[in-house]
Amino acid sequence: MENETTRMSTEDYSLYYGKFKALNSINIEIPSNRITAFIGPSGCGKSTFLRSFNRMNDLIPGVTTTGTVNLDGRDVAREDVVKLRKKVGMVFQRPNPFPKSIFDNVAYGPRLHGLKNRSELAVLVEKSLRQAAIWEEVKDDLQKSGMSLSGGQQQRLCIARAIAVEPEVILMDEPASALDPVATLKIEELMNELKKNYTIAIVTHNMQQAGRVSDYTAFMLTDQNRAGNLIEFGATKQIFTTPVNSRTEDYISGRFG
């Protein structure tokens, strides 16, 4: 992790659902302008952990946390959640465009944050759609419903919607698991482009995908109390060629029992 600027980090971060400990004292530094992948078997807490970065877990009744999650060195718990989510965008597993036009989908966030001017909105919408590599496919009819697009296009629309509020970080929760291989590939290539401007954290249960797209990989696993732990974190090349922890090796080589 030398020569990298840390964008987000956690310190001794634990999360509880009521009394049940779901995440156990996680320390990690997410480097700026890199793609960091979280891998691990189902139920290891990787999605829950990802959702800690934009405080989406706040929405679940009974969730409490200890330790801190930091964005640019500041504790996100002390930040206004609206401002935090403007800086830390999110793309979900299932493409979830609103049942509105393509334009209104992308303009939703900026409007929320106070941008009213139509021509400025139009510029921003085009820029976002271009960055999400979907402009060429939709530019002729921005009034078409976002729901009428194909799954892969919908997901890229959602990425455009997320980058329209000009975040620093984009969280992606298994963004390609509902897509076919071609659409998946497009999303992966897009991520490679996006990391020039954004810091990306992605949760994936697809190790191959983590290998293909990410610069850093974090492997998570549940302990005997079913709490999610960070087992190993390092450059993806290192994790995939010479993992230090034997459990990491078992998982990435498909010998996981």
Partner: peptide
Amino acid sequence: CLNIIATQQ
């Protein structure tokens, strides 16, 4: 080569 084989299958 090793890295590519490991990460890109």
